[in-house]
């Protein structure tokens, strides 16, 4: 697959008949982010390369992501909230993984980013609670932000900040579970 990467700027999904026809089904993988040869990692990967799925995901993903953020933020005024919105945002990464291969998606997201995000989300939630205590209120007593810091609508924005942090935690964990289950314990038993 690596020798195909040189011919990628031509963006021809099927290699012209000639030198490289000995690789049967994986030629079109050079078309998009999947050029990292994900198939080489595991033979049993449930990844099926389909232009229909790739095109659909490419169109739908930004809308799903926006919908997840909407659910997260608009949970203050309608149904939804951080947990639901976080799951929907996490679904975007799952869709990308199913469409373009889990290995390349994992490289694109970078597994350590997920751990950092989840940790920061949890830390942020705790520090919002401790921050209100430090400002002289009770735990998660959002109106303190208004009296002490002059934040307008402190309770509403406090709730939405917390919903966003919950969403970050949940989206990160969903994505992480997806990657972890896809990778399995392969290569990790002896660690």
């Amino acid at each position: 697959m690596s020798d195909d990467a040189t011919s990628e700027p031509g963006s021809e999904p099927v290699a012209p008949e000639g030198s490289e026809v000995d690789e049967p089904a994986e030629e079109s993988a050079t078309e998009e982010p999947a050029e990292e040869s994900p198939i080489a990692e595991t033979a049993s990967r449930p990844y099926v390369e389909s232009p229909i799925i790739m095109a659909t995901v490419r169109v739908v993903a930004p809308f799903v992501f926006t919908f997840g953020l909407f659910i997260m933020f608009h949970g203050a005024d309608s149904s939804g909230g951080g947990f639901q919105g976080g799951v929907i945002v996490g679904t975007v990464v799952l869709m990308l993984g199913i469409a373009f291969g889990i290995g390349p998606t994992r490289e694109w997201v970078d597994p350590s980013t997920i751990v950092v995000l989840v940790g920061l989300g949890t830390l942020g939630f705790v520090s919002v609670g401790l921050g209100t205590v430090a400002l002289g209120g009770a735990f998660l007593d959002y109106p303190v932000f208004g009296t002490a810091l002059g934040v307008p609508h402190p309770s509403k924005y406090g709730i939405e900040l917390v919903e966003l942090l919950i969403g970050v935690i949940v989206a990160g964990i969903i994505t992480g579970l997806f990657f972890a289950i896809a990778a399995g314990t392969r290569g990790g038993e002896s660690a």
């Binding site: 949970g75 959002y142 709730i159």
Partner: peptide, 13 residues
């Protein structure tokens, strides 16, 4: 709580 969704108000506040 300043939010219209009571469920969210109970959950987050």
């Amino acid at each position: 709580a300043g939010v219209e969704n009571v469920v969210t108000a109970v959950l987050a506040a």
